[in-house]
């Protein structure tokens, strides 16, 4: 087994616009699409001839991805239009909670290429990925909990990944095609904020092998809900089933006087009102607990450390509701 880092870097350089000689124009139909070289934007584009001669049709890697992921029972995306609402925190909680059942095999995949947080939150920082004949071996934090993130491939933890979309897509494809998960009951996919390359790609690549649905994370204030609406609109456009909304950071109990306050005030009714408006299940709200952030910083399971806290109960309720909707689908 050898560390894959150098190979990954080499591989990715080739993936970034393998054939094109100029950047894609604004309305580029995509060098792999049916219309490559024939669209309106292609007139006058330096890549026109190249695109026209590229092989057409569905991506030849999709069958490989399907084959690789065939032994995974459920795939859940964790989405939110807004950053910093707790997608990675919730992904880690969900992973810990599922892996607490020794009969389940769980995988967590981090698609946030520019800001990977999962390695730290699951206590796997500093690990490296190894390669064997059957593909990339995930990093195991537990006997039954494996994970994959670009964080494991960086020369230094502070290195910035300054990549355009095409390059990120290449890595996402490799994550789906080359990681040797083995048999899994659940694969939880953590995503970056927004509705752009990563989201389009993961949906394209997973469409055939099937996504169970998306868990949407939000915080109560309208500025966050505004972006979350966009994410739900994206799910509708992409035909991804929304399993439900969870409202994070809702309410804070002062450890000194036990008085409750709304830090991110839900002036428009918060996640619950949004769920009702859009006719989506509301899975529950999780209060803000400073110990959650600390547990994430040190890579420990908050659920194990403080099993009796109100936040733990709330998280477990959400996880249960989520599992119900996946199992009964």
């Amino acid at each position: 087994m050898i560390a894959v880092e150098t190979r990954v870097n080499k591989g990715i350089e080739q993936l970034d616009n393998p054939h094109l000689k100029a950047p894609e124009p604004e309305h580029c139909p995509g060098p792999e699409s049916e219309n490559a070289g024939k669209g309106d934007a292609c007139e006058g584009c330096a890549n026109k001839d190249i695109c026209e001669s590229l092989p057409k049709g569905p991506d030849p890697d999709i069958p490989l991805i399907n084959q690789r992921l065939a032994s995974i029972d459920h795939k859940i995306l964790v989405l939110s239009g807004k950053g910093g609402v707790g997608k990675s925190t919730f992904t880690s909680m969900l992973s810990w909670a599922l892996a607490a059942d020794p009969d389940l095999e769980v995988g967590a995949m981090d698609l946030d290429i520019c800001g990977p947080s999962l390695p730290r939150m699951l206590g796997a920082e500093g690990e490296t990925i190894h390669e064997s004949n059957s593909g990339w071996t995930p990093v195991y934090v537990n006997d039954n909990l494996g994970m994959m993130s670009i964080g494991f491939m960086l020369p230094e933890s502070d290195s910035a990944i300054i990549w355009r979309g095409a390059k990120k897509n290449g890595l996402i494809k490799q994550f789906l095609k080359d990681v040797d998960w083995g048999r899994l009951d659940y694969l939880i996919v953590d995503t970056p904020p927004g509705t752009s390359d990563e989201h389009i790609s993961v949906n394209t690549y997973l469409k055939e092998s099937g996504i169970d649905g998306a868990l949407i994370v939000t915080t109560p204030q309208e500025v966050a809900l505004l972006d979350v609406r966009k994410e739900i609109d994206f799910c509708r456009k992409a035909n991804i089933k929304v399993l439900g909304i969870v409202e994070n950071m809702s309410g804070f109990v002062c450890p000194n006087c036990k008085g409750e306050s709304q830090i991110f005030r839900a002036t428009t009714g918060g996640g619950k009102a949004l769920a009702e408006e859009l006719n989506i299940p509301f899975l529950g709200s999780v209060p803000l607990d400073p110990r959650i952030g600390k547990a994430c910083d040190s890579g420990e399971s908050f659920l194990d450390l403080y099993p009796d806290s109100p936040a733990s109960t709330a998280i477990l309720d959400v996880v249960e509701a989520l599992i119900d909707s996946v199992e009964n689908a």
């Binding site: 995509g30 239009g81 752009s196 609109d233």
Partner: peptide, 15 residues
């Protein structure tokens, strides 16, 4: 519409 999503890949954002 404020709920509309902008689902754009890189080249469009760049433009």
């Amino acid at each position: 519409d404020r709920g509309n999503s902008v689902v754009w890949r890189g080249p469009k954002k760049t433009a």
